[in-house]
């Protein structure tokens, strides 16, 4: 099970939890797994979040592979100047 940290604005969709566990070999599969328990969370996560994994921020995390002990941090999308 990967550990998933949710952004504050998504916590209400996950019963108020800030940290949840989920199964999956990719971030996309983790999102789908979360949606089975928390309907609506997938749409919110896919509407605009990047994911921090092992200290690196991925702007398009859908197909990024994760291990069972990976910690995934969903964060808001970033831009630069």
């Amino acid at each position: 099970m990967a550990t998933v940290h949710l952004m504050t604005q998504h916590r209400s969709l996950a019963g108020g939890e800030a940290v949840v566990e989920a199964d999956g070999a990719t971030v996309g599969q983790i999102i789908d797994d979360l949606d089975r328990r928390f309907p609506g969370l997938a749409a919110a996560l896919r509407a605009g979040s990047s994911a921090g994994i092992d200290g690196e921020i991925h702007a398009e995390p859908e197909f990024v592979r994760v291990q069972p002990d990976t910690v995934v941090y969903f964060v808001a999308p970033l831009t630069g100047g």
Binding site: M7, T8, Q9, A43, A44, A47, G48, A76
Partner: peptide
């Protein structure tokens, strides 16, 4: 407003709480 699903037109673009 972005990232909140369907909503009425508004003067708010984004609202981000962090805690």
């Amino acid at each position: 407003q972005k990232f909140v699903g369907p909503s009425d037109p508004s003067n708010i673009a984004t609202h981000t709480p962090l805690e």
